[in-house]
Design a protein around this nucleic acid. Structure first.
Lengths: 239, 239
DNA sequence: ATGCGGACTTGAACATGTTCAAGAAGCTGC
DNA sequence: GCAGCTTCTTGAACATGTTCAAGTCCGCAT
């Protein structure tokens, strides 16, 4: 939409992997993420990032529309690593509960080092008008990658899933993860242990809910819930 | 905690209703909220607020630690009006579903005019380190007022509530409201009609869940869910 | 090689949230 | 009324995200 005439193609970060510009871009974002992790988001000024990366302030803005946009790198990196790490952790896990737990804990492990600045990160992500919101279109790629991961979580398990729920379930498990992430962001316990405990305790609950959803008495409820999710959550345009 | 030596008592906004300072404070926040509603949060500069309110910039900072803190006024005002408006709308409503719906719609009505800047508001509220977060201690008063309101919603209905759930239910309904609010913040439909529809459709679902929670098959699930909420959500210190 | 067009880079200038040292105004006990 | 204390007010100075007009560099067609 606002991909104005100037500036490199921002939607495809891996355009020409080693053109001069691409290297500069990489250097800037690497520096930025390092500094964010080290001193926090707010304490890291654009001037400092530029200086450390050996470019001018204006140059940083040539590649990233705003300071917020630098954060998108974090989100992207995190979901990629999540997608890499989870399958390993899923091996040998057969029950749905175990698998959900594994996926959640994998996320917490990956995000752990960034907890210190997660709050500031999250503040920006929560602004719907920001391209960083997990619900925004710009984050679609990262989000879809993460949702697909939960499809794997489901498919490998022995739990039978009602047909009509099958295709909204990954999205719901992703939502479950978002809730855990939300809690994590607010979690002040040492090492964010409480978040891990939350993951360990909600995972079997979620699995049980899935299993129970087949009960006859619950059918109407489940049906309505399913329609609700379909109407309000899944707003993918027809490809 | 950070209530430093200088500055007026910020925790009790209604200290001395008509002292000079209190009037100035009031003038500033009224002006600010008006301007926020009119041109949005980011577009409203502290300088503009100060000018419009007829004070200096520094003076605004004497009463409000930061621009963000001006928003707390919004949250506070909203919950107060919510508490005022809802009882009227509850009159004559007997089913739990109707009552939940009424409470939700009341909130949406009140917040409606501020939707334009709700995103920016929300961004700040989502930062856990910000005193504005609905989960933060500073917002406790407003939040508790809102939770208490859901107690009323419950008490007036004919639905029987399992004993052990009775005292966590208001908190859960408040959470339900938070979800609707979250959706509302992201809602781009004209007049935020979709949010209202969401309220209308989730209200009966919530009510039904409450009713079904008495089923024997669901007892263990409900029990665990209840403990979960108790352990992770309700962190009130012993009075 | 030369020149041209676009990709890339610069840093000063700007806008705006925030701080602070200084002062004005109001109050209280004498 | 006055001294002294607190509350309140000021506006200039500062920090930092962002913009922009002007350059520099690079690859390619001629």
């Amino acid at each position: 939409m606002s991909a104005s005439a100037s500036g490199p193609d921002e939607t495809d970060a891996s355009a020409r992997p080693s053109s001069k510009g691409e290297r500069t871009r990489q250097r800037i974002i690497d520096t930025a993420l390092d500094m964010f992790a080290e001193r926090g988001y707010d304490k890291t000024t654009m001037r400092a990032i530029a200086a450390e990366a050996g470019v001018s302030v204006g140059n940083a803005y040539y590649y990233f529309k705003s300071k917020e946009h630098l954060i998108q790198g974090f989100y992207e990196q995190a979901t990629i690593r999540h997608a890499e790490l989870t399958p390993t952790m899923l091996e040998g896990k057969e029950t749905l509960a175990e698998r959900i737990e594994a996926a959640l804990l994998a996320w917490l492990d990956i995000a752990g080092p960034y907890h210190a600045f997660a709050g500031q990160f999250f503040r920006n992500a929560a602004d719907p008008s920001s391209p960083l919101s997990p619900f925004s279109e710009d984050s679609g790629e990262s989000r879809d990658r993460d949702i697909a991961l939960y499809q794997e979580v489901l498919e490998g398990s022995k739990t039978k899933v009602p047909k009509d729920m099958a295709d909204i379930l990954p999205e719901m498990l992703w939502l479950h993860q978002m809730v855990v992430v939300l809690y994590w962001v607010y979690d002040a316990s040492p090492g964010q242990e409480k978040s891990k405990e939350l993951a360990r305790r909600t995972a079997p609950l979620a699995a049980r809910v899935v299993a129970l959803s087949r009960l006859k008495i619950l059918r109407p409820l489940v049906k309505q819930g399913e329609e609700l999710v379909r109407d309000f959550l899944i707003t993918r345009k027809p490809a």
